[in-house]
Deep mutational scan, measured.
Amino acid sequence: MDTYKLILNGKTLKGETTTEAVDAATAEKVFKHYANEHGVHGHWTYDPETKTFTSTE
């Protein structure tokens, strides 16, 4: 398992979190669920070199 990072740049919520996942697709599902639960619906990007997802509203 690898550690993946999420950076949230929402209108009402900003911050970072991490998750352990078997691959990027699994981490993306976890992070999108997390963002949706916190009302963040933004544009998603992923940097495979740093294993970092960013959601920007």
Rank of each mutant, 00 (worst) to 15 (best):
T52M: 03
D47T: 05
H43E: 15
A24Q: 09
L13Q: 09
S55G: 06
E20R: 13
T17P: 02
F31Y: 01
H38W: 10
D47M: 04
T54S: 07
L13E: 09
W44H: 02
T50Q: 06
T3M: 09
Y46S: 00
G15W: 15
A21P: 00
N36L: 15
Y34F: 10
G10M: 07
K5C: 08
G15L: 15
F31A: 01
P48Y: 06
G42W: 14
T26W: 07
Y34P: 01
A27T: 01
A21T: 04
K5E: 03
V40W: 14
T17H: 15
F53I: 01
H38Q: 13
Y4G: 02
N9Y: 12
L8F: 11
E16Q: 10
E37L: 14
T12C: 15
T50I: 06
H41I: 11
Y34S: 01
S55W: 14
T45N: 08
D2P: 06
K5Y: 12
D2I: 12
E16D: 05
G39K: 06
Y46A: 00
H38L: 14
N9V: 13
K11Y: 12
A35T: 06
K14V: 11
G15M: 15
N36K: 14
T56D: 13
K14S: 11
T50N: 08
T12W: 14
K14M: 09
K11Q: 13
Y34K: 02
H41R: 09
A25K: 10
Y34W: 12
T3N: 05
D47H: 06
T56S: 10
H38F: 12
H43I: 15
T50V: 06
T52P: 00
T19W: 07
H43D: 14
T12D: 13
T3P: 03
E16I: 09
T45W: 07
E28G: 06
K5G: 03
K11H: 14
D2F: 13
K14W: 11
G39I: 04
E16V: 12
N9S: 10
E37A: 13
G10S: 08
L6F: 08
T18R: 07
T26Y: 07
Y34L: 06
T52G: 00
T56C: 07
G39E: 05
N36D: 13
G10I: 05
G10W: 14
L13T: 11
K29R: 12
L13M: 14
T12Y: 15
E49Y: 11
A35E: 07
N36R: 12
T19Q: 05
G42M: 05
K32N: 05
T54E: 07
E28R: 05
P48V: 08
T54M: 10
H43M: 13
K32E: 06
T50K: 07
D2E: 14
A21M: 02
E16A: 08
N36A: 15
E37G: 07
A21S: 06
D23R: 01
T54L: 07
I7L: 06
Y34A: 02
T26M: 11
D2W: 12
E20T: 13
T26G: 08
V40K: 02
D47A: 05
E37S: 12
T54A: 06
T26V: 07
H43S: 13
T45Q: 09
T19N: 02
D2T: 14
A24S: 08
E28V: 05
Y4W: 04
D47S: 06
A25D: 10
T52N: 01
T3G: 03
K5N: 06
V22Q: 12
K11F: 14
G42V: 04
